[in-house]
């Protein structure tokens, strides 16, 4: 059992509109997979199904070896979800948010866990202020810190840097790298191609409800004709690969 996340033939429709039309994915343990796609491509739907918030219409999905439909309780015990919008309690302080998460994860030393995460995410100074006073970047950092309480083996990050300033974005990237280094499996959705390029071991492109390409950045680059040798050799960026495989018209899968 080397896959942290294994998805086969996943389908989900809303009425006549098939959001997911047979998605296959395999994320080995301890790796970072970036799920790339335009708005409306179904990235969030995949994440919601894998985190047991939504039922699939068909196909199978296992997370940490547990079936999302049959063993949702065990799946929830293995994962953490950071959604598109920072889901933090604004009335509580940063520390209280973390302590609450630690208690809900039934950890014994909630206070210490919270303190460690506050230090790690550079929130110590703001720890005892209400989250309502935090900046967007601080909220996002707290949000991700809350997801790490209890060291879940599998982490879902749904567009973790959307709406962040460049510094906060770099800070989030550093965190994801650190997590990957310590053996956490990360499934990250993003529409920023450089983010995928920076962070992911493997990249999957979701388009019109299917994974149309999946591989390492190097493998994806090989899909394009090799860089022609002119005066300057320039490697194709992931952005060029992306636009080439989805069609440069960039029609979102609606």
């Amino acid at each position: 059992m080397t896959s942290a996340i294994a998805v086969a033939g996943l389908r989900k429709s809303y009425g006549d509109h098939a959001v997911l039309d047979g998605v296959d994915l395999d994320v080995p343990r301890g790796t970072v997979l970036a799920l790339l796609g335009s708005n409306g491509a179904g990235k969030t739907t995949v994440v919601r199904i894998l985190s047991t918030l939504l039922r699939a219409d068909g196909g199978t999905a296992t997370v940490n070896g547990f079936d999302v439909a049959g063993q949702p309780e065990q799946v929830r015990g293995s994962i953490s979800l950071t959604g598109q919008f920072a889901a933090v309690d604004q009335v509580l302080t940063g520390r209280e948010n973390l302590v609450l998460m630690a208690r809900l994860r039934h950890l014994d030393d909630a206070g210490r866990v919270a303190g460690d995460l506050l230090t790690r995410f550079d929130l110590t100074d703001a720890a005892d202020r209400r989250v309502a006073t935090y900046s967007g970047g601080m909220r996002r950092r707290l949000d991700i810190a809350m997801s790490l309480v209890g060291d879940p083996p599998v982490l879902f990050l749904d567009e973790p840097t959307t709406g962040l300033d460049p510094q906060s974005r770099t800070a989030v990237w550093a965190t994801v790298r650190e997590l990957a280094g310590s053996g956490t499996t990360v499934l990250l959705t993003t529409q920023y191609l450089d983010e995928a390029e920076q962070l992911a071991d493997r990249i999957a492109i979701l388009h019109r409800g299917r994974i149309i390409v999946e591989g390492t950045l190097a493998e994806l680059r090989r899909l394009l004709p090799p860089a022609t040798v002119e005066h300057v050799e320039k490697q194709s960026t992931l952005e060029e690969v992306f636009l080439a495989v989805v069609g440069s018209g960039g029609q979102a899968g609606r």
Binding site: L53, R76, S80, L81, G83, Q84, F85, A86, D89, M146
Partner: peptide
């Protein structure tokens, strides 16, 4: 704010 989703996951 997504807190319900967080708790449900």
């Amino acid at each position: 704010t997504g807190i319900v989703e967080r708790f449900r996951s």
